[in-house]
Design a protein around this nucleic acid. Sequence first.
DNA 1: AAAACGCGCAACCGCCTTGGT
DNA 2: TACCAAGGCGGTTGCGCGTTT
Length: 290
Amino acid sequence: MGRAPCCEKIGLKRGRWTVEEDEILNNYIKTHGEGSWRSLPKNAGLLRCGKSCRLRWINYLRSDLRRGNISVEEEHLITNLHQSLGNRWSLIAAHLPGRTDNEIKNYWNSHLSRKILPSRRPMNQPAKTITPIINKRKGRTSQTSTKKTNKAYRPSTVTSTVGNQKIIAQSDEPHANQQTKVDPCVSDEDEMICFINNIMDTDMITMVEDGGSTVATGEPMSVIDEGKQAMVSEQVEVGGTSSSSADSFDNWDWDFDVDDVVLGFGGEGDDIILSWPWESITDDDNFLWV
DNA sequence: AAAACGCGCAACCGCCTTGGT
DNA sequence: TACCAAGGCGGTTGCGCGTTT
């Protein structure tokens, strides 16, 4: 017995949406609001699967969408977010207002992955595959589940030296259940990209070699301890300089009481983020100059 | 001019989690 | 506690269109 289809498919239309269908869906949602996707097509008089309606609305019909022309800034943001979050397109999309996860995913697959990944691996060297550490959370994202997810996000810190200045960069990294290819930077790499790669690479390697054993046991370690440990263990030497800021971590407020899609520290709005490491990769605010 | 090819994007698929009962 | 429906997500597919041969 195969798995039952998510919805009755007999007689339902598939493929591209027509203008008329868009209009019906648009009008229905404007009148009745989002939700109840299962019953929506029937009520609206659409011969479509509820999932299909939801997808069409989210990816195409919503009024707050920005379509096309991903800017350079957005591209940088996507790149940096992907370094930290991996293929968690919905989380990445949450940082690009008006962009959908589908759009970003497509953009990544068609533009950025080719642009970035090939340059990170020497031609004659196979990519190193890191076994997933943390189970990827899939499926419905409620506020409660978001809380759980957020707690799994552990800011990591990497110190590096650029010129004669030491940099501490904090990177958020859930490292989901994904296969990530880690490669050394090549010589002609742009310096900043190379630095970002170092962050990612060292994160991943440390996760496996150091923090990995803890997670692999399946023991639900204290989130706070886990975060601290990760941050401490992930202090790495880049450019011959290293430091530990473990002491300062104890002073952090780790009581993440968040209802947000992303890490939040409170503030005027629920989804205000105090500091995302990638927020402005060329902005000094992003790093702590020591 | 036409066939072949490649790319971008919309849509689908199947798995997973959540929340209600 | 178990079950089920609904919703959400990432991966994949395939169509349409522009470019190349």
